[in-house]
């Protein structure tokens, strides 16, 4: 009967697979382990690895973060908190900005949510501490003086709000409407 033959075949196949499996693992015994031993050997990580978080600056050396709360909203563990405030010139910024790295799971959602490219994850992962409170990073600890992965983008060059000069001076903007004239 073909069915019977099939079953026999399957049993044999199974047995062979079993033996193959045991053989494979056995052969492994004599191979050189592929482990890299961490503190002695530090493997260079790709730039998009997700570890310690920084707040970057735009090409004008201004803080990029506008404290829009989007990163804190997207953070699945709610470890970002901040307070936005207004600078004298009307620019929105973070009066304080705090990331609790003892909660952060380095998922990178904050970076993805950030509309100004301010918050970025870096490959620097050696941040362990014994005291939890020392893992709470304030804005001073997070702010760096470069643009991180993107050196060009400047949110305020595209936004409609004014920080300096007259309206209509930003990228892709027309001159402001003159209310006192009907000429186009």
């Amino acid at each position: 009967m073909p069915g019977e033959k099939n079953r026999l075949l399957r049993v044999t196949e199974g047995l062979v697979a079993l033996i193959q499996g045991f053989w494979t693992t056995f052969i492994h015994l004599f191979r050189k382990p592929i482990t890299e031993e961490y503190p002695e050997y530090k493997r260079p990580l790709p730039p998009r690895s997700r570890a310690r978080i920084i707040l970057t600056r735009d090409p004008d050396f201004e803080e990029r973060c506008v404290a829009c709360y989007l990163c804190s909203a997207s953070c699945p563990v709610s470890c970002i908190s901040m307070q936005s405030a207004e600078r004298a010139d009307g620019r929105r910024y973070a009066a304080w900005f705090r990331i609790n790295f003892s909660r952060c799971i380095y998922c990178g959602l904050c970076e993805e949510a950030c509309p100004t490219l301010a918050i970025q994850l870096t490959p620097d992962f050696e941040t362990c501490q014994y005291d939890l409170l020392t893992l709470v990073a304030e804005k001073e600890d997070l702010l760096v003086d470069h643009g991180g992965k993107n050196q060009e983008y400047n949110y305020y060059r595209y936004a409609g709000v004014l920080v300096d000069g007259d309206k209509g001076g930003h990228i892709q903007e027309a001159r402001p409407v003159n209310l006192k004239s009907n000429l186009p």
């Binding site: 492994h28 015994l29 382990p33 592929i34 031993e37």
Partner: peptide
């Protein structure tokens, strides 16, 4: 130890 060697680890 043995397990890790079976899995090519240290």
């Amino acid at each position: 130890k043995l397990l890790s060697r079976l899995q090519i680890r240290l």
